[in-house]
Design a protein around this nucleic acid. Structure first.
Lengths: 245, 245
DNA sequence: AAGAATTTGTCCGTATGTATG
DNA sequence: TCATACATACGGACAAATTCT
């Protein structure tokens, strides 16, 4: 399912995955309902069993359906059993604006928790060179103020840089997964490219505190920064959703 | 890759995935090195191209390798670009005990961050019936004190129950992913089935605070509980690793 | 600059195994 | 016991992208 995060050309099985995911996430195929057998589905979509099975496997990886040998395929209760990779699919196919707003809100909140936690031990885990490298990245943002897309892109790099600097692989890998899910969404909606006033100064002060050996100050500054940033983003989301109605 | 989380029989492509992952994670195939072409690899593993491509796709999903049409396949810098799903693979194939210890530590820490955060708004987001259901689950643990495996299993259910009760899909789905990665590891090592003294009382007091409308007390209690629990688990990990040396 | 060689991407058809009801 | 339905594996053909000559 890395196709959903990269911008690659879509193959047939991916298109079928989207069609079936749409039917499931929109409620047309509710949890518990059974899918047609593979052979019949492959006829319905005008393809062969192998290609269709590709699509089924994608749906299984999203925990949208489960297939049992000898039995058949049924739709799972994805609201309870879904995987994190389901997030972009959900946002794309649901028509429940309130639910998708909550998903974005929680997603930002998770990001904040992780980043702030990492900042809280930055001085102990990161080397000065690494911190300086991120600081330089932050300062380079002054030159990007006229280029929103570059601003967003570098902002993600800064967060990733902090994760890398902290040398916590589990955090970095979890963050990688989240960022990859997020990046497509954020680049699809320029309306959400929102930055707080004093953006560069805020982040700069975080790095300076860390370089000063004061992790807890770094953490509290990052917390304040992200809370404000997330608040603006959620405001933008609401405005954007209002336009859709 | 759901095969790695479920206990299904391993097919050929999965075995090939493990062989190649082992070579990569052990450093035999370092980042930047190129893999043999698909056709040659399929011969080397005594299979056909399609089955081998299955394995390659698994490695791509783990962000261990990338394949480019017309070019070839190369090993990625997985320490920087790995996905969260790489965690169990890393733990299984690395021989770096210190690194794997840190991974487990961070994993537990992530769990704590998420669970505590959810507890911090439990009274506002969860219904009384849901909280009572989790409370009942907690109390049922008294009857499982002689059955460690059931204790572990229900402990996971309690955490998942809290996530569900809070009605935050992004949290629940992220947590689902983490739990599924964790569950195999934890059930493979009974040495790590460690529970703090007063386990049931601790969790009970969390739920009672939430039912009392006091989310912040619930959160701080859960924080204390998980810090102590994680500390014991890490101690068990260290003891276990000492035996391996 | 053009074309040949190499390599992955996509899709199809088929045969056989295995779990389920 | 038997039919059904998914699971696995193999082989082949052609398309598309890249690299090299």
């Amino acid at each position: 399912m890395s196709e959903s995060t990269t911008g690659r050309r879509k193959n047939l099985s991916h298109k079928i995955t989207e069609l079936l995911a749409e039917e499931i996430l929109s409620g047309k195929l509710p949890p518990g309902s059974r899918l047609l057998p593979e052979r019949e589905l492959s006829v319905r979509f005008g393809t062969n069993r192998n290609t269709l099975r590709e699509a089924i496997r994608n749906l299984e990886n999203l925990h949208l359906v489960s297939a049992r040998q000898g039995d058949g395929m049924k739709v799972l209760d994805w609201t309870r059993q879904g995987e994190v990779t389901l997030l972009p699919w959900f946002l794309q196919h649901t028509r429940d604006l309130e639910a998708s707003r909550k998903v974005v809100e929680d997603f930002l909140r998770l990001r904040r928790l992780m980043v702030v936690d990492v900042c809280g031990r930055l001085a102990e885990t990161a080397g000065r060179e690494e911190l300086n490298a991120v600081l330089e990245l932050v300062r380079s943002q002054r030159g990007n103020l006229g280029n929103p897309e570059q601003l967003v892109r570098t902002d993600l790099d800064i967060m990733l840089g902090l994760m890398r600097a902290a040398h916590r692989m589990a955090y970095l890998w979890s963050f990688n997964t989240m960022v990859r899910l997020y990046v497509n969404a954020v680049f699809s909606f320029p309306d959400l490219w929102v930055f707080v006033p004093g953006y560069v100064d805020s982040l700069e002060s975080v790095l300076l505190a860390a370089l000063d050996g004061d992790s807890s100050t770094a953490a509290s500054r990052m917390d304040r920064h992200l809370r404000e940033s997330d608040r603006l983003i959620m405001e933008a989301v609401r405005n954007f959703q209002t336009l859709l109605e």
